[in-house]
């Protein structure tokens, strides 16, 4: 590639990368928080509430992310929801992720041994304390691989935001490709870049996983 091109488009690509990271981080944060709340709400013994949350999860997981984005970004104004592209993108990522995170958390919650919760209850711990000190740490350990996997998937989904004109890396790259008529080279470069990015996220995740579960592999902890 021409080094002039890099000088000319470098800043735009860098800015785009910043937007990508911002969307990914904010989307993950919203998704994790919303997913956790959904999981907690789902445990409340009120049937209609459970149905609504279940329907929400099924709808989000059963429809393409792109359609959800279009609904939010193009369909939103019809019901008074006028969002900027980047805001819509972040919100879209968050909502999309929340359904998957909620399911992951649900599995994690169920994996926490019941006896631990009962023991905490019998020791007189309040529910908030049990949640924070007993359930959350247990959940975190068992759900980390799935959470990391989902975050890696969300890294890839940020690319879709370019379609609703969020000025992230893919969008800047397409602008560059169109202006320089060097579509193939640019896209090949981008493919390699994202390959590394997703690989890096997964690697970091695996390291985190070993760190968080290091005490599990200890022989004295082998007895469940």
């Amino acid at each position: 590639m021409d080094s002039n091109l890099l000088v000319q488009y470098g800043p735009a690509l860098l800015r785009g990368f910043g937007v990508t990271i911002l969307c990914w981080a904010a989307g993950c944060a919203i998704g994790l928080a919303l997913g956790f709340v959904l999981m907690l709400l789902r445990r409340i013994e009120v049937k209609p509430l459970r149905w609504i949350i279940r329907a929400y999860i099924e709808v989000i997981r059963g429809t393409p992310f792109l359609i959800q984005l279009f609904l939010l970004y193009s369909g939103g104004p019809a019901i008074g929801l006028r969002l900027e592209a980047t805001t819509a993108g972040i919100l879209g990522l968050g909502v999309y992720g929340s359904a998957y995170f909620a399911e992951i958390f649900r599995a994690g919650y169920q994996a926490v041994p019941k006896g631990q919760v009962e023991a905490a209850l019998s020791l007189g711990m309040p529910y908030g304390g049990i949640l924070r000190r007993v359930i959350l740490p247990g959940m975190l350990v068992s759900t980390i691989p799935a959470l990391v996997n989902m975050m890696a998937i969300l890294t890839k989904e940020t690319v879709v935001l370019s379609i609703i004109t969020v000025p992230e890396l893919m969008y800047e790259m397409q602008t560059m490709a169109a202006e320089t008529f060097a579509s193939f080279e640019t896209i090949l470069g981008m493919a390699l870049f994202y390959w590394l990015l997703v690989e890096a996220v997964s690697r970091l995740g695996r390291r985190l996983e070993t760190r968080m579960t290091r005490f599990l592999s200890h022989p004295s902890n082998a007895r469940a």
Binding site: K156, E157, V159, S162, M170, F184, L188, A191, W195
Partner: peptide, 17 residues
Amino acid sequence: SFFRGVPLLIQLLLIYY
């Protein structure tokens, strides 16, 4: 590794171009 690591949209454009 490549086809699972690279976003589908980029794969698509790559093949298209």
